[in-house]
């Protein structure tokens, strides 16, 4: 760990597993007695599902222990609650807040002016990242945010600048500016989760450019669901050149007869077809890796868990991240 308290923002195209990676990262960061907070901002309760717990309330609660005795806390940030919190904390406007809510103003602020909504969500995460106990120690060693997808991330994080521009003075202005200072500082990094497929990689490339242009720090690219390379083109060509030898070998392994039409021989064509699909995919993956390499980001890879990610799988992924990532 660099010593800096850090806010890790994890984004990625839909379907790339950003919630899983965010959770694995929070676990890895909590290893060896540290304490992390994993926050979600989209009201999807993805964290609760992943950790196989009850839906998370708007409250920081411990949801897992990390290897070597650390703690992962989780929080589902709700914009309306965050606004009331904020009014209470900074202006002691608890009762005015309730009045605003009765009038529908809270609804207004968090729904139709969703820019303010995003400020509240990022603001809460920044607050947790900066929070100190009475001895001046940081309450969390790191905060990991399961953020909106790549297509919306720059806007989501950059909205503070926009809102600060809209509200030219006043507390919201100041709040938005201070959140922006944290987000653009070296203490915050945005990590992008991708698969080795065309669209997710393209979105990652575009996302990195946008983030950098907006002055946000890009941390790492996490390639998720990497499948093992079991056969390369040369091996496939050698094997395919002699189908009879393949049939004989399959037969020798006890899979039936090798002569034409017998069980082992009938396996050869479909198995070769699968292998061709495999090498075709590997070739596409090479193109994608090359595109990612041009981003010049640290790159970490997580394997595809064929069985899907359960709690045990999550710990395995967190172990993988911990091995590769100097946290």
């Amino acid at each position: 760990m660099s010593g800096l308290q850090r806010l890790h923002v994890v984004t990625g195209k839909g379907g790339t597993g950003k919630t899983t990676v965010a959770a694995a990262l929070a676990l890895a960061l909590a290893a060896d007695g540290r304490r992390t907070l994993l926050v979600e901002v989209e009201g999807r309760q993805g964290i609760a599902q992943l950790f196989e717990t009850e839906p998370l309330p708007y409250e920081e609660r411990r949801i897992a222990s990390a290897p070597g005795g650390g703690d992962v806390f989780a929080l589902a940030i709700d914009a309306e609650q965050a606004l009331l919190d904020y009014l209470q904390m900074f202006y002691r406007m608890g009762s005015a807040g309730r009045a605003l809510r009765r009038l529908g103003a809270i609804d207004f602020v968090t729904t139709i002016a969703p820019g303010l909504r995003d400020v509240l969500l990022t603001g809460k995460a920044c607050e947790a990242a900066r929070r100190q106990d009475k001895h001046g120690r940081h309450v969390y060693d790191a905060v990991v945010m399961d953020a909106p997808p790549t297509g919306r991330i720059t806007r989501f994080l950059g909205v503070n600048a926009e809102v600060a521009g809209l509200a030219k003075a006043g507390p919201i202005h100041n709040h938005a500016r201070s959140v922006m200072r944290v987000l653009t500082s070296a203490r915050t990094a945005v990590h992008l989760v991708t698969l080795l497929e065309d669209m997710p990689v393209q979105e990652t490339v575009d996302g990195v450019a946008e983030l950098r242009e907006a002055g946000l720090q890009v941390g790492a690219a996490v390639v998720n669901m990497v499948r093992p390379a079991l056969m390369d083109e040369a091996e496939l060509e050698r094997a395919a050149a002699d189908p009879a030898a393949l049939a004989a070998a399959l037969s020798a392994a006890g899979l039936g007869g090798a002569s034409r039409g017998a069980r082992a021989e009938r396996l050869v064509a479909p198995l070769l077809r699968q292998a061709r699909e495999h090498t075709e995919r590997l070739a596409l993956e090479r193109t994608q890796r090359a595109a990612l390499a041009r981003l010049e980001l640290p790159q970490y890879e997580l394997p595809l868990l064929t069985e899907g990610v359960d709690l045990a799988g999550l710990y395995r992924l967190s172990g993988e991240l911990g091995k590769q990532w100097p946290l």
Partner: peptide
């Protein structure tokens, strides 16, 4: 399938063996 097998190519070389093992893993 003995009859089938012996009626085949009459044996496997190491390429066939390695190739078949990789295909089976895939």
């Amino acid at each position: 399938d003995t009859a089938d097998t012996t009626g085949g190519t009459g044996g496997t070389d190491s390429t066939g063996t390695e190739g078949a093992a990789a295909l089976l893993r895939l």
